[in-house]
Computed example of a mutant assay.
Amino acid sequence: MATATKTVWSVDPTHSEIQFKVKHLVISTVTGYFRQFEGTVETEGEDFETAKIQFSADVTSVDTNMEQRDQHLRSADFFDAEKYPKLSFTSTNVTKTGEDTYKILGDLTIKDVTKPVELKAEYGGSMVDFYGNHKAGFELTGKINRKEFGLSWHAVTEAGGIVVADDVKLAINVQVAKPA
C-alpha cells in the first residue's frame, strides 16, 4: 500500500489576514489586524485532516487603525512587544466535522503564556492560480479570553463602564500554497 507524501503548504500573506475583534465600552467593536505573520500547514498528500499547523505573528505589526491605541497594545499593559515580539500557534489535533468544516485544537502562546484553544475552520476549496501555484483557502474563527494570556490591562469609565472586554473574537482568512 502506497503512503501519501508529506506536503508543506506555506501561508500566502498577500492573500491572508489575521483579524481580532474586541468590545470597546461594551457598546461598539474595535477591529484589529496583525500585518506581519507566517505559517505552514503540513499534510499527508492533500488531506487537511492530517494537518500539522504552525503559525506566528509579529506583535509589533498590530494595527487597529489608530496609532495611539496600537502603541498601547504593544506596551507592557498588553502584548509587551519589546519582551515578547511574537505570538504563536501550534496545532495539536485537526478533526473533520463536516464536508468542508474542521475543528482545530492547538496551543496559543501570547507573551509567556501558552493555553489550549479551539478554532473552527471552513475549507473554501483549492485551485491552481494563473502562475501554476496550487492554493487552498480557509476561514477560521475562535474566541479567547485576553486575561488568560496576561493581557490584563483594565480600566473603567467614570460611569463605571468597562473600557475593554475580556473576550476577543478571532477571524482568520488564510490562503496556503504548496510547492510546485
Rank of each mutant, 00 (worst) to 15 (best):
P85M: 12
K120S: 14
T101G: 07
S16R: 11
Q19K: 15
E17W: 05
I172S: 05
K23C: 02
G160F: 04
K6F: 01
Q19V: 13
D70Q: 04
M66N: 12
Q19F: 02
S56L: 14
K6L: 12
Y123V: 12
S61M: 07
E67P: 13
S56H: 14
K52Q: 14
L25C: 08
Y84K: 03
K169L: 09
K83W: 04
M66V: 05
F79D: 00
T114V: 08
V59T: 15
R69S: 11
A76M: 05
S126A: 10
S10R: 12
E158T: 12
Y33N: 13
A177Q: 12
D129Q: 07
Y123E: 07
V174W: 00
V128S: 11
L170C: 10
G106F: 02
D107V: 11
Q19H: 14
G132S: 11
F89P: 01
A57R: 00
F89E: 02
K6T: 15
E17C: 04
K120G: 13
V26R: 02
I110Q: 01
Q36I: 09
A81S: 15
T90E: 15
A136F: 02
L119E: 01
N65R: 11
I53Q: 01
G137M: 06
L87N: 02
E49T: 14
E82V: 12
K111A: 04
